[in-house]
Design a binder for these strands. Structure first.
Lengths: 154, 154
DNA sequence: CTAATACCTGTAGTCACTAGAGGTTCAAGC
DNA sequence: GCTTGAACCTCTAGTGACTACAGGTATTAG
């Protein structure tokens, strides 16, 4: 048996594989306080309960939604206080949604500018390349504002 | 006069302000080799020509388009060889465009899921909050694949 | 001449992990 | 009991593209 039975303590490897992350990530989350310090067995290895599996699933799912680690910290805190009103949760999620929408907006403008520029390249020499020309002179862009690609990507 | 005359050597502060970045960024670009080592005056301070202003404008504009520093390095290299065919430029720009489009795609899927989730919250207690519930259980999501928000944002 | 400003170098911090070195513990087979 | 290999441990450094200091020097305006 590979110890997948329901209420036995599990090791970091199984915890990681059941939550689609790596042992390094689990140790990292413990270090930054997203997960509490794990119980250890006699040989100093971490042992986890089902409750930790659930907590880590929550964390991974929230991260997968694009919430920052700090936001996840707040969400966990709220989830730990179930009788409180969920206004803060709602507000956090709406702010996140607004950020995603803004990101889409900026990337769409950038995409249009890139498409226009790329479409104008006729495949000659670099000397007459429209892409290089546009990069050399912002006045050739359709907007005179920044594209914001450096922030909207990466 | 604040030394804005056309062909005099300028300092790092003026170079920075004319290219919408900071002196630290200029020094950083020099360090990583995007800009050549600057000439110095008697007091060891960097002095720049108009050519450097142009080069840095190109760099900033390309970064603003979202090209990575490595991509900018390649673009600069190509721009420095004007008689070569611009096929590589074109290919680099098209790959970048594809990346931007993919990013928009992923963020759009994420936005839809977030919108759906946020819309279901009725403002009660955390206990019955749909947002917390969805984060706790991926099966409540409309797709059973990852949302990829952690990679698509950030 | 003085004071404010701009500049210099070098280091560390950001974010959310990931990768590696160098050592220890565990589980299975013989 | 012994061996072997996988899994685990801690600690450090690296990623991208800057940004922010600290502690010192140069320039410039008045």
């Amino acid at each position: 048996m590979t110890s997948t039975s329901s209420h036995a303590a599990i090791g970091i490897g199984e915890l990681a594989s059941r939550t689609h992350c790596k042992p390094e990530t689990v140790r990292y989350y413990e270090k930054i306080g997203l997960l509490p310090a794990a119980l250890r067995n006699e040989g100093n290895q971490r042992r986890y309960s089902e409750a930790t599996v659930q907590r880590l699933m929550f964390i991974r799912h929230a991260r997968d939604f694009g919430f920052s680690v700090d936001a996840v910290r707040e969400l966990l805190d709220m989830a730990d206080h179930p009788t409180q009103p969920c206004q803060q949760v709602d507000s956090l999620a709406r702010r996140h949604l607004a950020e995603v929408e803004s990101r889409i907006q900026r990337l769409t403008v950038l995409r249009d500018e890139l498409q226009r520029t790329v479409a104008q390249c006729d495949g000659g020499s670099v000397e007459q390349c429209r892409i290089i020309e546009v990069l050399s002179d912002h006045r050739l862009c359709s907007h005179n504002t920044a594209h914001g690609g450096a922030e909207a990507l990466r």
